[in-house]
Design a protein around this nucleic acid. Structure first.
Lengths: 224, 224
DNA sequence: AGATCCTTCGGGGTTTCCCTGATGCCACGA
DNA sequence: TCGTGGCATCAGGGAAACCCCGAAGGATCT
């Protein structure tokens, strides 16, 4: 019998098996923490959360079915007190802010050193917020300038849902495909497209796709 | 002393520490394989390869300093017989072809199941090529149709007119716009689009635009 | 309590997409 | 010289996407 009275059960949501292994390895020597669930998609994650108890969810931003931000919202709706730590692969303050607004309790980039990851997990488990240093600065910046103002890359002005659709457009997905992915009406996607165009000052459909593709490749294959 | 006569030394190049841990965990029980080097950037990797001996390099596509493809080329220049296994986040065809052309001996996506990763490592160590199933199909497509002389970026197969239209598509021009620009019938542009899609192995309209945009941005702001 | 987004859709008209041809043109080889 | 085949040009017609309207239920902020 050990001294550890309660083990903190964690659910990992990430579509990269190797990455999940990495987290597992990090927590190998933290005996009071145990990974008691893994999911590759948001849908799987929701299913697990419904039937099992967890003390923490670690979720990636980019999942296959839906955006990680949406997953955070869904989780909040189902289990308001279940803390979520959000991981993202390529920094960007954009997602940090959205993640916290959606109810996440922490935000961390995957480039973070291992000890920082453990720190973040412990901090969120304790009930605190965790923001990595880089995200921290950017958050401050965006609070000072007055919350979602203009000076940014104008993609900032998109809502969560709009951004999600913008990204899918940038991956070469068509309207009806996206509607199917998100289980929404084609009409809804059309409305979002229209709103995105307005916000970005774009007038034609092909220009919208071009902007989306360039934005996605800039953050996926880019240097920034 | 164990029976293992030679340990295969591996260098991992990836800017995500957690991911490197994940690979390490996968190879924990493969006693003839050892991770004897880790690097976060291409520059670091080159430094290590100069001073140490490795039997295999596992490299991510998206690094901080330069593209992983360029790293493969540099490694080939320095150690022509050192095999490289390339990992990538979530795209598929675009980089697989480039990676192999640059001299990589294998291509794998990070979504791959753990056992597939081990298989890939062993296969490349043995001297074989490794292509994941999804990449496989796309490569076959481009080799079979390309056969012999070219097998270039497959955009080479487009006729002059088709290439012209492809470029305009990549600039975000719509069908009717292009028709007007070139003083042609909309029907003609539609025919060209259709032919381009066939030649590039593309099935949907949005994918065509995405391919065109990526090609154009790579050509104007590009690397190779 | 009102204003303002966000998100979700429908109607209806216009445009684009896509499949199936069809017509000249030109080059290459049997 | 006569196919054969790629290239460029277009039409018809049905399906799908796009675009301009409107609208309703929520969330948030003032």
């Amino acid at each position: 019998m050990k001294m550890t009275p309660i083990q903190q059960r964690i659910l990992i949501v990430d579509d990269h098996p190797i990455f999940r292994k990495g987290i597992a390895m990090l927590l190998e020597h933290e005996h009071d923490i145990i990974i008691s669930g893994e999911a590759e998609t948001a849908a799987q994650a929701m299913g697990l959360v419904e039937h099992q108890e967890f003390e923490l969810v670690i979720a990636d931003i980019s999942l296959k079915d839906i955006n990680g931000i949406e997953l955070v919202k869904s989780l909040k709706a189902l289990k308001p007190h279940l803390p979520v730590l959000v991981l993202s692969m390529h920094d960007e303050s954009l997602y940090a802010e959205r993640a916290l607004r959606a109810g996440a309790r922490g935000y961390l980039m995957k480039q973070a050193p291992p000890d920082q990851v453990v720190t973040a997990i412990r901090q969120v488990l304790r009930g605190d917020l965790y923001l990595s240093a880089a995200a921290n600065l950017l958050m401050l910046n965006s609070f000072v300038t007055g919350r979602g103002s203009n000076s940014k890359s104008s993609v900032e002005k998109l809502s969560d849902r709009e951004l999600e659709i913008f990204e899918l457009l940038g991956q070469g997905r068509g309207t009806s495909m996206i509607a199917h992915d998100l289980r929404l009406s084609v009409k809804t996607i059309e409305a979002h497209r229209s709103h995105i165009k307005t916000k970005l000052g774009i007038t034609t459909a092909p220009e919208l796709v071009r902007a989306a593709v360039e934005w996605v490749t800039r953050r996926t294959g880019g240097d920034d």
